Structure formats: structure tokens, C-alpha cells
Lab assay of single mutants.
Amino acid sequence: KELVLVLYDYQEKSPREVTVKKGDILTLLNSTNKDWWKVEVDDRQGFIPAAYLKKL
């Protein structure tokens, strides 16, 4: 499984997104879309802008 580091706080703006904090380490589920990556946060799955994440 691939992990990503959150570079900036992000507040979800729709039900398909998730809220994260800078410094969080998340499981990356899908990065095929270059703009929005799907991650897992506390048993929730959702999207975050790829620019907010860095692969570890």
C-alpha cells in the first residue's frame, strides 16, 4: 500500500472529499487522476487535491 503526506490543511467542500491536516500520513487508494487523489482517512474514503499531497 502506498502512503502520502499531507502538505497543507484541507477542508472538504463536498461529500466526496475528506478533511485532512498538514502532516497527516494517509493511505493512497488511487492517483490515476492528476488533479484529485483518492485517500483513506479514519475508515473514510474520499478525494483531496493532488497538489496537497506528496507520495512517500
Rank of each mutant, 00 (worst) to 15 (best):
K1L: 14
K1G: 10
K1W: 13
K1Y: 13
E2I: 13
E2P: 12
E2V: 14
E2S: 13
V4M: 03
V4Q: 00
V4P: 00
V4I: 05
L5Q: 08
L5F: 07
L5D: 01
L5S: 04
L5T: 06
V6H: 00
V6D: 00
V6I: 04
V6Q: 00
L7R: 06
L7W: 02
L7I: 08
L7N: 02
Y8F: 12
D9T: 06
Y10I: 01
Y10A: 01
Y10V: 01
Q11P: 06
Q11D: 14
Q11S: 12
Q11I: 14
E12S: 15
K13P: 05
K13N: 10
K13F: 06
K13W: 05
K13E: 08
K13M: 12
K13C: 10
K13R: 14
S14V: 05
S14C: 09
S14F: 07
S14N: 12
S14E: 09
S14I: 04
P15H: 10
P15E: 12
P15K: 10
R16P: 06
R16I: 12
R16H: 13
R16W: 15
R16A: 13
R16Q: 14
R16V: 10
E17H: 06
E17C: 06
E17S: 06
E17Q: 11
V18L: 15
V18Y: 04
V18R: 02
V18W: 07
V18H: 03
V18F: 10
T19K: 04
T19A: 05
T19M: 04
T19N: 05
T19R: 05
T19I: 03
V20A: 12
V20C: 09
V20S: 03
K21R: 14
K21I: 07
K21A: 09
K21S: 10
K21Y: 15
K22C: 08
K22N: 05
K22R: 11
K22W: 03
K22D: 02
G23R: 02
G23S: 03
G23W: 06
D24P: 00
D24M: 15
D24F: 08
D24Q: 15
D24I: 06
I25L: 07
I25S: 02
L26E: 00
L26S: 01
T27G: 08
T27Y: 13
T27L: 14
T27F: 12
T27A: 11
T27P: 15
L28T: 01
L28M: 03
L29A: 04
L29R: 04
L29K: 05
L29P: 00
N30T: 08
N30F: 07
N30Y: 07
S31R: 08
S31N: 08
S31W: 11
S31E: 12
S31C: 11
T32N: 13
T32W: 09
T32M: 12
N33G: 09
N33K: 07
N33H: 12
K34Y: 09
K34F: 09
K34P: 15
K34M: 11
K34C: 11
D35V: 15
D35E: 15
D35C: 13
D35S: 14
W36S: 04
W36E: 06
W36Y: 10
W36F: 07
W37N: 01
W37G: 01
W37I: 02
W37T: 02
W37S: 02
K38V: 12
V39I: 10
V39T: 01
V39R: 00
V39Q: 00
V39F: 01
V39A: 02
E40C: 12
E40F: 07
E40V: 11
E40L: 11
E40N: 06
V41C: 10
V41F: 10
V41Y: 09
V41E: 02
D42L: 14
D42K: 14
D42A: 14
D43T: 12
D43I: 09
R44S: 05
R44L: 06
Q45C: 10
Q45T: 13
Q45L: 07
Q45A: 12
Q45D: 08
G46N: 02
G46F: 14
G46Y: 10
G46I: 11
F47S: 03
F47H: 06
I48A: 15
I48R: 01
I48L: 13
I48M: 14
I48Q: 00
P49S: 03
P49V: 02
P49Q: 04
A50T: 06
A50C: 08
A50I: 04
A50Q: 06
A50H: 04
A50R: 14
A51N: 13
A51R: 15
A51G: 11
A51D: 08
Y52M: 08
Y52N: 08
L53H: 00
L53F: 03
K54F: 13
K54V: 13
K54T: 10
K55Q: 07
K55Y: 08
K55E: 05
K55C: 09
K55D: 03
K55P: 08
L56G: 02
L56Y: 09
L56V: 11
